[in-house]
Design a protein around this nucleic acid. Structure first.
Lengths: 167, 167
DNA sequence: TATTGTTATACTCTATAACTATA
DNA sequence: TATAGTTATAGAGTATAACAATA
C-alpha cells in the first residue's frame, strides 16, 4: 500500500561533457522488485492518483469525498439520522459531528428536530444543498467519464466488479 | 473517496411481538443511490478493506505498508539515497526522516557515510533487516494469495492491469 | 442498561517552509 | 544558486473514552 505517484525520476547525465552543458545529475534507475506486482501497492497508488484528480474535478463545489458521499446519502434518504449515515459510510459518530457542522455552516444540510426518538435529529438537504449536489454530480460524472476513457468501455465495469470482491 | 467498510447495518424488527422477544430496532434500509456505482468510492472501500487485512497479516513483523515498501526498495537498490526512495514511492523527504529513523532504531536499516556527495548517505538493510524482510515477504505472499482467492485466477492480473491505467 | 449525539483527545499520514551543509 | 537531509509545524483522517439526554 505505500504511496507513489509513479515518479522514479531519472535524470540523465551529460557524459564527460564540460560544465557549459546543462549538467543533470544521474540517478541510477530504481529497481522496484516485487513491489511492482503487489495488488495492495497498486491499489494504493491508484487511489492516491484518483483522489488527486477527483479533488481537481470537484474544486468548483469544494466537496471532499466524504462530504460528497454524505450529501448523497442524505439526499437519497431524507430524514436519515447521524448514526445511520455513519454506519452506512463506515465513519465514527464522533468524527461525523464536525463534518456535519461544516455542511450546516455552509448551508448545505440541516439537523431538524421532531423525531419520535428525541435523542436524534433528522437530516435534510437545504434547497441550496440540493443545488450544490446537482452540480457536484455533474462534475463527478465528467470525472467518471475520464476514468472510463482510461479504463476502456468494459474496463470500468470489470474494475467495479473486481473491487467489490475485495470488500 | 469516502470510507465505508460495507456496513449498511440493517437490524430487523420483530413485528408487533411482545417485549419478551429480543426487540431489535429497525433501521430502514439505506439507499446508497449513485454512490454504489462510483469507481472512486469502490476504490476507497477496497483500499480500506485491503489495508485492514494487510495489517492483520503483517502483525508478526509489525511493518506498515510504507515501511515495508521502503525495506523492499533498499533491499533491491543497496546504497540508494533518501531522495531516491522518496521520489520512487511518492513520499515527502521531510516525512521520510522519522520513518527511516524508526527503521534504524529497530535495527532494520542503516545510513552509511562514504558517498562521493557528502550531503547524502547510502541506505542499506542490516542482516536483521534482511531476515525480517524475508519473513515479511512470506507473510505478504500469503496475503496476496488470499486476494487471489477472492479475485479468481485471472482476476488478480486483470485488476493489476486496470489499476495501472489509473496511475 | 443501552443508545444518540457530543466533547475531548490522540495518533497517523500528508504537506510546506525554512534551516545546514554541502555541491 | 541549487540540492540532500533535517527540523518544525500544520492540516487532514481516523480512533477511543466519557459525558448528558433520552430510551
Amino acid at each position: 500500500m505505500s504511496p507513489a505517484p509513479g515518479s522514479a525520476r531519472r535524470k540523465s547525465r551529460v557524459g564527460g561533457k564540460a560544465d557549459t552543458e546543462v549538467a543533470i545529475r544521474t540517478t541510477r534507475p530504481i529497481n522496484f522488485g516485487p513491489l511492482a506486482d503487489f495488488v495492495g501497492y497498486a491499489l494504493r497508488r491508484a487511489q492516491v492518483a484518483a483522489t488527486t484528480r477527483y479533488l481537481e474535478a470537484m474544486q468548483e463545489v469544494d466537496l471532499r469525498p466524504t462530504q460528497f458521499s454524505v450529501l448523497i446519502l442524505i439526499n437519497e434518504n431524507p430524514g436519515i439520522r447521524q448514526t445511520e449515515v455513519c454506519a452506512a459510510l463506515g465513519l465514527q459518530k464522533a468524527n461525523f459531528v464536525p463534518l456535519l457542522n461544516e455542511l450546516q455552516r455552509r448551508g448545505l444540510a440541516v439537523r431538524k428536530a421532531g423525531v419520535p426518538d428525541r435523542r436524534s435529529s433528522a437530516l435534510y438537504l437545504t434547497p441550496h444543498g440540493e443545488a450544490v449536489l446537482k452540480r457536484a454530480n455533474e462534475l463527478h460524472t465528467a470525472w467518471e467519464q475520464s476514468l472510463s476513457a482510461r479504463l476502456g468501455p468494459q474496463g470500468r465495469t470489470q474494475l467495479l466488479e473486481l473491487l467489490q470482491k475485495l470488500i
